[in-house]
Amino acid sequence: MKHLLEVDHLSTSFFTYAGEVKAVSDVSFYVDEGEAIGIVGESGSGKSVTVQSVMKLIPNPPGKIVNGEILFQGKDLAKASEKEMQSIRGKAMGMIFQDPMTSLNPVLTIGMQMTEVLKRHEGLSNSEAMQRAEKYLEMVGIPNPTARLKQYPHEFSGGMRQRVMIAMALLCNPKLLIADEPTTALDVTIQAQILELMKDLKTKINTSIILITHDLGVVAGLCTRIVVMYGGRVVETGTVYDIFQNPKHPYTWGLLKSVPRLDSESKSKLVPIPGTPPDLLNPPKGCGFAARCPYAMNVCLNQKPEQTKLSELHQASCWLLHPDAPKVEDYKPSKGGVKG
């Protein structure tokens, strides 16, 4: 079966006065039709650069896709021209950007910003585009959409602006929706509403979703698979059950131990991951996580680990999975379990 999106050995760099910053290195993952996946990791792990590479939104110069394929519906976007990408962005692919407070143009009404994509991609008249925009504002839970279309972004709260961004991304019924940390700037109550909204829309219009976040807890209710990134590389992939109940990479253990758990019987404090992410201007020779890993061995410092296939959908890149490595058990899964 062909995947809707298949990213194969993608590498993206930024060429600066100080040298080449290898922001994304040898990243591979896929998304099937109607599926939601999560890409998680700390700030600087390469999540946003990965999806911006998929959308061909990397500014050139200084950024450049230096290797790999980005197959979307069978077409390699890595080789697509800007004109071809303009016909894909907003129509076949939609994107919700990180900060709803700054992503909307403050001097244009919501209606003008929402109808632009419909006029460009579907050739609708202004009245037809306004009718479609009203329908989608109502779909994302914004009351009185007719009046709201005449208002400016400053007249909306942060949660309302994020709903507008979601409606704009969905106007042309894209096959793939990329949500780049859509809940980061919102309070926890609005976060839950936005995630529930995305889950409902996925069911209603069968849109595939890539959810980018630094919080593993956010993806549990929406996604079926998770891609864990660190230092510009994929370190572990698997189903939600695999990642939450049977994680195999020390970095994944660290992420999970830094997330609050309601099932914990003890009142122990959250455990942060010590140290800082690697310098991607001079990436480490071996495993990128070795300097912060309590179980690092000499081989970890000198040689990058191969990907180990643990099951059909679960893979991890760690020398601890080698048959000759010492046996280590670090993370204790939750008692209730996670549906995957």
Rank of each mutant, 00 (worst) to 15 (best):
Y17K: 15
K22L: 11
P182G: 11
P260Q: 02
V107N: 04
Q315W: 14
A92G: 12
E20L: 06
S258L: 07
V49K: 06
P100W: 12
R148F: 13
D32V: 10
N246I: 09
T237Q: 11
K309E: 14
L195K: 01
Q98D: 06
L104D: 04
K2P: 14
M112Q: 13
K75M: 14
D26S: 15
G46F: 13
H9L: 05
H9W: 06
N173M: 13
I166H: 12
G46D: 08
V328W: 04
S28R: 06
K202M: 09
M1P: 15
L4W: 05
T308W: 07
V107M: 00
V188L: 06
I226D: 04
G286E: 02
E82H: 04
E116T: 09
Q113N: 02
T184G: 11
P250K: 03
A316V: 06
L270Y: 10
L280N: 01
V40G: 09
T184F: 08
L170T: 12
N298M: 02
L301P: 04
G337L: 08
K64V: 10
I70V: 12
V66D: 09
P260D: 01
D330M: 03
P278K: 03
L118G: 04
I70C: 04
S157K: 09
K2Q: 14
F97K: 06
E312F: 04
G337A: 07
S125N: 09
I70G: 02
L195N: 10
T109H: 07
Q191G: 15
P247S: 05
E155C: 05
E116R: 00
Q315P: 06
L176Y: 07
